[in-house]
Structures are given as structure tokens and as C-alpha cells.
């Protein structure tokens, strides 16, 4: 059996005020697998991602990435293996031009100028951002910003990609484009999202977190179709898994009132 891309064993983390953010969470992700992390706001999804990339130190348990334990001495190597897409793309695009932003991680890896130029241009082309090299990232559209942050991470060729609410604030076309691009990747992916339709499109396995605990795991359609579970977790069965209910709704409220 091959080494999992991500292995989490009994992970527990408490905030300084004593609130338990994640408790005894265990799961693993195989290389190339796309796994969704869903749950209500405050369930611990982002906290778990922050622990995976080493921004938070677990109180109990262990996390390993491609067999390498997440610890202070391994942080540099871990961050070379894990790419993270943050919830707010504006926070992730911090360099003055798109070219420099995509080059940022590669320069930190010590890439030569010739290789760097090729890699940056290829990375931008793959995300459909060619021609925007000298653009100030703050002036890109929401969809372009999301793709730019993805380009900046993917050029570093991470083994595992963490995506925290990647479809937030995207218009339908940009969201569809993002889903298409994410579906084409062969990295292991952990997707934390409230966009359950996106989860159904991208992931082959789903993990449901509620109040820091892992409460369900399995096939996305089966788990997300469980109405009681969704209700308990402040979630809703995705529209595509619901029987067509329009006939029960009757006419719109405005017409009923008149």
C-alpha cells in the first residue's frame, strides 16, 4: 500500500481560550484523491487546514504529509509539499504584479532565472492568465484572482492541495471554470466548502465535521443525501440531490398575496 498523501491521527486542538476547535479527528487521503471537508461555520475545517500546513500546533495527535510528520523542524519541507488556497484571494496575492506573485514561491525554492521565467509563464498559461503578467493583482476580477492564487500555488508542484472555500464570491461562470480546472488536477486535494454542489462535482469522498468532531464519512452523494445528518449539521441536502419540489411551492409569494 502506498504512503498516504495526508494522514491525520487523533488530531485535537484547543484555542487559547479553551474552546475545542477539533477533537480526535482521524482520516487519510490517498495520492491524487479529492476529499471534501464539510460542516457548519465554526466546525473546525479551516483550523484543521491550518494545522496541516503547520500554522497551528496540535494539542494531541499527529499529522503527516507524504510520510513526513508536521513538526517545527519539518515545516519548510511540509510547506513545499502542501499548497494552500486561502478563503480570501486578496490576502494571497501580495506582490505588485501577477508575474512576481506567481514567481514568489519559486524564488523561495531557489529556482534559476531561466527556469523561473518558463515556469511562471507556463503556470499562468495553464490557468488562462497569459497576457496579465504585469497586471496589479488587486485590479483582477474575482475569478481571475482565484485562478491567480491557484497558479501561484500550483507552480510549486505541491503533492497535496488544501482549498478553503475556493468558490466564495465567484460568479457562476468563474465558479464553473474553477471547478473545471480543479477537476483536471492530479494532486491530492482537500476541499473545505459550503458549496455542496461543487463538492459533488469534484470529490470522491466526503468528511463531515460538526463541533470539531468527525461525524460522518463516505460517498458524497450518499452522505449529502442524508437529510437528518444535514439538518443536524446546519447544512442542506444539495439541490441536485433533492426530488423536484417546485410543484409543492405553488406560485411565487408576490402572486399569492395579490
Amino acid at each position: 500500500m502506498s504512503t498516504p498523501a495526508l494522514d491525520i491521527r487523533n488530531a485535537t486542538y484547543r484555542y487559547p481560550d479553551g474552546t475545542c476547535a477539533i477533537e480526535d479527528v482521524s482520516f487519510s487521503v490517498a495520492p491524487g484523491e479529492a476529499v471534501a471537508l464539510v460542516g457548519p461555520s465554526g466546525a473546525g475545517k479551516t483550523t484543521l487546514m491550518m494545522a496541516i500546513i503547520g500554522f497551528l500546533r496540535l494539542e494531541k495527535g499527529a499529522i503527516s504529509v507524504n510520510g513526513l510528520q508536521v513538526s517545527k523542524k519539518n515545516l519548510r519541507r511540509i510547506r513545499g509539499e502542501v499548497g494552500m488556497i486561502f478563503q480570501n484571494a486578496d490576502d494571497q496575492l501580495f506582490m505588485p504584479t501577477l508575474y512576481e506573485d506567481v514567481a514568489f514561491g519559486l524564488l523561495n525554492k531557489g529556482m534559476s532565472p531561466e527556469e523561473l521565467d518558463r515556469a511562471v509563464r507556463r503556470g499562468l498559461a495553464e490557468r488562462g492568465l497569459s497576457g496579465l503578467e504585469q497586471k496589479f493583482p488587486g485590479h483582477l476580477s474575482g475569478g481571475q484572482k482565484r485562478l491567480a492564487s491557484l497558479a501561484g500555488v500550483l507552480v510549486m508542484e505541491p503533492g497535496i492541495l488544501l482549498l478553503d472555500e475556493p468558490s466564495t464570491n465567484l460568479d457562476p461562470k468563474s465558479r464553473r471554470n474553477l471547478i473545471r480546472q480543479l477537476a483536471d488536477l492530479d494532486n491530492a486535494r482537500v476541499l473545505a466548502s459550503h458549496d455542496l454542489e461543487m463538492v459533488l462535482d469534484l470529490c470522491t469522498r466526503i468528511l463531515v465535521l460538526n463541533q470539531g468532531r468527525l461525524v460522518a464519512e463516505g460517498d458524497p452523494a450518499r452522505v449529502l443525501g442524508n437529510e437528518d445528518l444535514m439538518e443536524d449539521c446546519n447544512l442542506e441536502v444539495p439541490h441536485s440531490l433533492q426530488p423536484h419540489r417546485l410543484q409543492h411551492h405553488g406560485p411565487p409569494r408576490s402572486q399569492r398575496d395579490s
Binding site: Y99, E100, N108
Partner: peptide, 24 residues
């Protein structure tokens, strides 16, 4: 809060105290 988020994004891409530029 936002500065911390930017800082995390920088660390996640290997920032180790020096901002290197591709410009020559």
C-alpha cells in the same frame, strides 16, 4: 487579522525572511 492572513499566505509559499524579486 488581515495582515496575519497575508503573513500566513507568504509563509505557505516558503517565505523565510527575504523577499526575492525576479526583476534583474
Amino acid at each position: 487579522d488581515r495582515s496575519e492572513a497575508v503573513w500566513h499566505a507568504m509563509l505557505a509559499r516558503g517565505f523565510a525572511g527575504e523577499i526575492r524579486s525576479p526583476n534583474r
